[in-house]
Simulated assay, not measured.
Amino acid sequence: MDEERIAAIRALPKVELHLHIEGAAPPGFIRGLAQEKSLRLDGVFAPDGSYAYTDFVHFLQIYEAATSALRSPEDYARLTTAVLEESAANGVIYSECFLSPDFCGGGDLGAWREYLHAIREAADAAERSMGVTLRGIVTCIRHFGPERAKPVALCAAETAGDWIVGFGMGGDENKGRQKDFAYSFDMAREAGLRLTTHAGEWRGPGEVADAVNDLRVERIGHGVRAAEDLALVDRLAEDGVVLEVCPGSNVTLGVYPKLGAHPIDKLRERGVKVTVSTDDPPFFHTSMADEYEALAKTFGWDEEVFDEIARTSVEAAFCDADTKAALLKRLG
């Protein structure tokens, strides 16, 4: 593709459904917070100032170490503004971010409400000034275990509404089983929250099947390993289960050796509803515009395909019908 065509694709309006708010923190922002608090973050940053990690487990450790600089509702308000500035600069008009009460108040409902209020205020201000809409999905952390997930689910249930629109699970997929967290997912479902969970990033297609069967989610974070079982792929397509695909993340972490080996195009061609997100963009040296450019160059996706991806994302979003209608108008 010529440079003019790539520039047009980078500038397209985008919808992102899989974004961890702490993982989207620019490293300079975290470094500045740490300096303000006289907090040492040894080993978190590489010599060039980026985040430093060696593999997925180490990435999780660095992620949590960086998050330790975020200690107050005001810190999260500032973080929200910084993240949405990056989103708006990349043409994102709507984003759903993962928020964990484990990091925002230690799972205490009262503290969680204070953090949530600060995040919402910052998000509302960003929507007015930057034109990017944000909604929250409360997540439990898988490697913290199912008991720690229960107060997180309670925080989600007690603040469910027009802004907290979903519940999910992140963390180390190699710990425990999806069904271990059924109690928390049932609590969130009864509160009217929509459901997603990370699955099929590291474990194989059986993990995706478990997520659908045991937790009854309608979206899957990543889900790409489902491509190894075509019967499962066809089931996902038939049932309309949406995959929150993060290609740059998958390649950087070594799930696939290069983007050309990534199954997103094959999944889409077989009828699976795929969306495109960045996951933890500064950790993976990516952005939504970078993802679009890489997909266009690797798979030949044109503006029509990206419009389909954006509309699928709006359809799969957990926000209300009025917000979806407004987003579709902005897509043109």
Rank of each mutant, 00 (worst) to 15 (best):
Y63N: 08
D265Y: 08
H117C: 11
K179N: 06
D290M: 09
V255K: 01
P26T: 09
R189N: 05
L331N: 04
C155S: 04
S68V: 04
P247H: 02
P257E: 14
D302L: 05
A211Q: 15
G106M: 13
I6A: 10
F181W: 12
P146K: 14
V208D: 15
A149G: 07
N90W: 00
L327S: 09
A88T: 12
A294N: 15
F283P: 01
R268P: 00
A191P: 06
A153M: 11
S184T: 08
E74T: 15
P26N: 12
G105C: 06
D2E: 11
I220Y: 14
E315K: 12
K150N: 08
S287E: 10
L41R: 02
E64W: 04
S277E: 01
L33G: 01
A156G: 11
T286Y: 00
K324R: 13
A149P: 06
D229H: 07
S184Q: 05
A157N: 03
P101W: 02
K150I: 14
A310E: 08
C97Y: 02
I264K: 14
A11K: 06
D162G: 12
I220H: 13
F59N: 04
V57A: 12
A122Q: 04
D186S: 11
A160E: 12
L328I: 04
G136T: 12
C104W: 03
A111V: 07
I141D: 04
V274T: 10
A191L: 09
D234T: 08
E293G: 05
E16T: 04
R235A: 05
D214P: 00
P26I: 10
S50M: 09
A8K: 12
R194Y: 10
G28D: 15
A316T: 00
G23F: 00
K258Q: 11
D280T: 03
S68W: 01
E86S: 07
E114F: 02
L327T: 05
T139C: 13
P101T: 05
V251T: 09
